[in-house]
């Protein structure tokens, strides 16, 4: 049985930490945006002609000339009641845009997260099991190359091979920036998902594969592995029963910890493949001074990355029987 009180205490502690993190993130981004030349009124008007009265009205609305503390308090007050404001470039509520874009990105991230996790783990186990053979060397070389190559470059390479030379997938476009999902058919969308998901997957494989390999080799030199061998266990059975059992949890934990890298990768890959996700929205919002959207995205990305860390923490602290059952024994 899990100790409920222990978990509650743990979650409470995590919540407080998260609140602090959010406040810091919000303050930082607010200050940065305030110092930058971004002007929401110009962004809103963009190419339209507007009368000076109209401009003054808009400036009052966004509080352009207010001191930063007042702006911040206003904005925070709105956020607490769930009002993130209206996106200037999409001209719909920020939450609506984020909901849509995040869903698209989540599908992309989740797909590549699962594929890279499973594939990376399998490759890592294989390399560790076949340590120092050509299989191991091939896996290592592959991982080192991927780890040292810039994400952008790999993404471009994938575009060149699969879209330009082989013509299997659209180069990009198809789903114009700002188009909402109801305008795009499922197949269209799937076609646009495959290449970015593939790119993110092959990129994500590297760290998990190398980690799994090293962990397995470490486990293979433990006393309990040696004793299992002495009891006559051997080969794949031995790896399965005592190797994988002992590296699975750390590997899954690492995969959850990699949410931040996954998110970073997604932003870049979405750019290259013109995938209409949160990364692309963030870049557009930044380039076109969409302050409310930018701040909204910052908050939700922080929540997303934090969730990954939280799950990793929970796995680490409550799933391992040594720690779990250790609570009651003593």
């Amino acid at each position: 049985m899990l100790d409920k009180q222990k978990i509650l205490k743990f979650l409470g502690y995590k919540l407080v930490r998260f609140a602090i993190l959010l406040v810091v993130v919000i303050l930082l981004s607010f200050i940065l945006i305030d110092m930058s030349p971004i002007n929401p009124v110009n962004a809103y008007i963009s190419n339209m002609v507007a009368s000076p009265e109209k401009i003054a009205q808009l400036e009052a609305y966004w509080g352009v000339n207010q001191p930063i503390t007042e702006k911040l308090l206003n904005w925070l007050g709105n956020i607490i009641v769930g009002d993130f404001g209206t996106s200037l470039i999409y001209r719909t509520p920020v939450l609506h845009v984020i909901g849509e874009k995040f869903t698209a990105s989540l599908i992309l991230m989740l797909t590549s997260w699962v594929i890279s996790g499973v594939l990376g783990f399998a490759l890592g186990v294989l390399a560790g099991f076949k340590r120092d053979t050509w299989v191991d060397k091939a896996v290592k070389v592959y991982c080192y190359i991927l780890q040292s190559a810039p994400t952008f470059w790999i993404a471009l390479l994938v575009v060149m091979v699969f879209s330009v030379y082989l013509g299997l997938f659209p180069v990009s476009g198809g789903v114009p920036i700002g188009a909402l999902s109801q305008d795009v058919s499922f197949w269209d969308w799937l076609r646009h998902l495959i290449l970015p998901a593939f790119t993110l997957s092959i990129l994500g494989v590297a760290s998990i594969a190398l980690y799994t390999r090293d962990k397995l080799i470490e486990v293979m030199s433990t006393d309990y592995f040696l004793f299992a061998k002495a009891r006559g266990e051997d080969g794949w059975t031995l790896i399965k029963r005592h190797g994988i059992r002992n590296i699975l949890l750390p590997a899954i934990t690492l995969q959850f910890l990699s949410f931040s890298e996954l998110f970073g990768g997604t932003v870049l890959v979405e750019q290259v493949f013109m995938y209409p996700g949160i990364g692309q929205a963030a870049v557009s919002a930044g380039l076109r001074s969409d302050v409310p959207l930018l701040l909204g995205i910052v908050i939700f990305s922080a929540i997303f990355v934090y969730c990954g860390n939280l799950i990793a923490d929970i796995l680490y602290n409550f799933v391992d029987p040594r720690i779990r059952e250790g609570e009651e024994n003593g």
Partner: peptide
């Protein structure tokens, strides 16, 4: 022969897999 005709009694509990129930591993 190992684990059959020739058996080892190791030094400490560290020689048991920490994540496997005792009967399952023996």
């Amino acid at each position: 022969l190992r684990g059959k005709e020739i058996a080892l009694i190791p030094q400490s509990v560290n020689f048991l897999d920490p994540l496997m129930k005792v009967s399952d591993q023996v």
